[in-house]
Design a protein around this nucleic acid. Structure first.
Length: 150
DNA sequence: GCCAACGTTGGC
DNA sequence: GCCAACGTTGGC
């Protein structure tokens, strides 16, 4: 089983929103690297950290599980969506998504600031310079370490 | 709001 | 294929 981290701006969709919904299509991914990872590497049952980004207190806030294989993201065909992609064809969709299922909130948010202070997380991808991927794999040792801080 | 660090686009 | 311009992400 693989581990992941997935970012969301809490103003748009927070861990509590997912908690209320239970399962949600993780739409709006418009990055080829992330699309390929979802398509090729994600498996049903994988676990993922829910990370709050672009907010007052960036932090890992919860755990979810991957609940579907990758399939076409409907928002790419929706002219009214900000994720609309006029260049994508229905018989050859450019963008994919997976469904995610709420597992639990962490006992407390584990803030980016704390992660940065932890020597054992020096090579955690979240902390690497220029990391802009909104979804990426997490080593089990990093996964366990983050959970030891909650 | 600023800015670094990318990724994408498009002219050539 | 190169590269400048532009757009986006995301911390601060």
């Amino acid at each position: 089983m693989a581990y992941w981290l997935m970012k969301s701006e809490p103003d748009a969709f927070s861990i509590d929103d997912l908690g209320a919904r239970k399962t949600e299509p993780w739409d709006g991914i418009r990055n080829y690297q992330v699309r390929n990872m979802m398509r090729d590497d994600m498996r049903i049952g994988d676990l993922a950290f829910f990370y709050h980004s672009s907010c007052a207190e960036p932090a890992v806030v919860g755990i979810m599980s991957i609940a579907s294989k990758a399939y076409a993201d409907p928002s790419q065909f929706d002219r009214n969506s900000k994720y609309y992609d006029a260049g994508s064809k229905r018989d050859d969709p450019r963008w994919l998504l997976v469904d995610v299922r709420f597992e639990r909130k962490l006992r407390r948010p584990v803030r980016l600031q704390e992660l940065k202070e932890h020597p054992a997380l020096e090579d955690f991808q979240l902390l690497k310079r220029g990391n802009r991927l909104s979804v990426f794999p997490v080593d089990k040792r990093h996964w366990d370490l983050v959970l030891s801080l909650e």
